[in-house]
Design a protein around this nucleic acid. Structure first.
Lengths: 111, 111
DNA sequence: CCCGGCTATTTGGTGTTGCTAAGTACCGGT
DNA sequence: ACCGGTACTTAGCAACACCAAATAGCCGGG
């Protein structure tokens, strides 16, 4: 889409990926492909991998190496307890922000 | 609130400020104070000023220096035509993101 | 047989953004 | 004269997404 969405993704992309993993375990390539389908056309390959490394180091996900029939082994990530907790926080922060934005959209500051 | 909201603000804070200015002209100190009231407790003073400089340089706002009775002159910003256009884009990008997030929240990837 | 194409991950460097912290400046009340 | 509130500026830092290129395994076609 463009620069705007790129900047907005800072801070939310992490939550998006955690939410995906909250649905079910997945690996990087798969997540990237899925996001592209969802309309995030310009999410860079490398971005997701870097993000996955980050959340792994923070202990939010567990990792398992699974051989693939079609290429090098996949690193399958799954959300653990700590990750679920963090995801809850993310949603509450998101709600906070979304509410403020929604109010701003209809009304602005003059109220 | 914390680090989470800080990261999420990247990319949205700009839109928030533009939306405020879309309501009516305002100056930095005022905007900061208002945002704090709205619950953005930890938005740093300097952040808003830096942002205002940025959007001014991009030609999204017009500036007028207005003397204040209580301190140094205020720099009052008002959204111009280009700014309004940009704000429209911002809202459309925001909608896109908010919809995807909302779908993720209820449902996840398993669909 | 090896070369291109798909799968899958890694790494290094760049730009934008918000934060921290300190400083400048103007005013009124004590 | 000083302090606290108003109002803006500047310099350095950290986090995050992007781009580009490299690595690596597997497959089928020429």
């Amino acid at each position: 889409m463009g620069k705007l969405v790129t900047e907005m993704l800072k801070g939310t992309l992490e939550g998006i990926v955690l939410a995906v993993l909250g649905g079910r375990p997945a690996y990087g390539y798969e997540i990237t492909a899925w996001l592209r389908e969802q309309g995030f056309s310009d999410i860079a390959e490398g971005t997701i991998y870097a993000l996955l490394v980050r959340i792994e180091q923070r202990g939010l996900v567990d990792v398992e190496k699974v051989p693939s029939e079609k290429g090098p082994p996949r690193k399958v990530y799954s959300l653990n307890a700590q990750g679920r907790e963090y995801l809850e926080e993310f949603w509450s922060t998101w709600s906070f922000l979304a509410e403020r934005l929604e109010q701003l959209r209809k009304g602005g500051k003059q109220t």
